[in-house]
């Protein structure tokens, strides 16, 4: 929501900027910039995306369907969905809690919390995976205790979920913090003075105000959860039909020279990305509209 609204404001401003002769750039500069960036994005983003679908259907749609209905592929899809289904709600709860505490309270260690939230962005996903191996792996700190109790985390589904939660943690919190900070505490204070308890205040005042930002964060979390490769690759062990997620499945197929099948699975991920993009654009649009309706807080 924060991105969405600032983009919209800037668009308005840019239009005004453009219309003035005094602040307008030479047309040549404008065209060079626009053409260069369009060409760049076409070459590096659009063409590969198109290539995925072309390759997927290169040997006909039957091969494609066959590759996708392979039991290993299906199990990879299932595992990807499970990982997303667990990590998205977890991030939703902890993201809201973290954003709430940062935006609405003053406390010692606030900066530490902000830094921690950003950690998954700054650390390479491979390292995130290795951390979990180090802690929960057979040779790890808790390894012997876990094997004594017959609990499997690494090379099993729990490890994949943990790794996914780690890499997706910042999305919801990062989205919500600016939104909550911009809104301040007055509406919540008003609700409490009027007799609302904590849950009622959250449910009737806070949540409606952040819902678009929250949805935006959830969509990004979901996209990342389903697409994550690095961290998951380290903890997964690549056991076919058991611990393979869709991105890992693509890699295995590709390294076995099954190009069509690899691209068929990849096209599934790409399609997911496109759907995400559509929903994201729609949410941004709604968020900007909601903001326009309610944005004039002080006037």
């Amino acid at each position: 929501m924060s991105h969405a609204t600032t983009l919209r404001w800037r668009a308005d401003k840019a239009a005004r900027f453009e219309s003035r002769a005094a602040t307008c750039e030479a047309p040549a500069i404008k065209w060079v910039l626009v053409t260069a960036s369009l060409a760049f994005f076409t070459l590096f983003l659009l063409m590969p995306l198109a290539a995925v679908f072309v390759e997927a259907f290169a040997k006909g749609w039957r091969t494609c369907i066959a590759a996708l209905s392979d039991p290993d592929a299906l199990s990879a899809v299932r595992l990807t969905l499970i990982a997303a289904a667990i990590s998205v709600p977890l991030n939703l709860v902890f993201g809201v809690a973290a954003a709430w505490s940062i935006a609405k309270f003053e406390f010692r260690g606030k900066h530490v919390l902000i830094t921690l939230i950003d950690l998954p962005f700054s650390v390479s996903p491979v390292i995130a995976g290795l951390i979990y191996v180090l802690v929960f792996g057979a040779q790890g700190w808790l390894g012997s205790w876990l094997s004594d109790h017959d609990i499997k985390i690494i090379f099993a589904v729990p490890g994949i979920v943990l790794a996914t939660v780690f890499v997706t943690f910042p999305f919801v919190a990062r989205e919500l913090i600016p939104v909550m900070q911009a809104q301040g505490r007055e509406e919540e204070e008003a609700a409490v003075v009027l007799g609302a308890n904590g849950w009622q205040t959250f449910r009737h005042v806070t949540l409606p105000n952040i819902k678009w930002g929250l949805l935006y964060g959830v969509i990004l979390t979901n996209a990342r959860a389903m697409g994550e490769f690095g961290a998951v690759s380290v903890v997964s062990g690549h056991i076919r039909g058991l611990t393979n997620t869709l991105p890992l499945h693509v890699e295995i197929l590709y390294s076995e020279y099954q190009f069509s099948a690899a691209f068929a699975a990849a096209s599934l991920l790409a399609a997911l990305a496109l759907v995400t993009l559509c929903i994201k654009t729609w949410v941004e649009h709604r968020a900007a509209r909601a903001w326009d309706n309610t944005g004039t807080i002080t006037s």
Partner: peptide, 30 residues
Amino acid sequence: REREVGFVFQHYALFRHMTVFDNVAFGLRM
């Protein structure tokens, strides 16, 4: 919550996603 005071804020602090009616009704509904 239990002090039974009414508070009017400088910047109104109206619930922006609610209609005027729902704003006024808020305290009663809670």
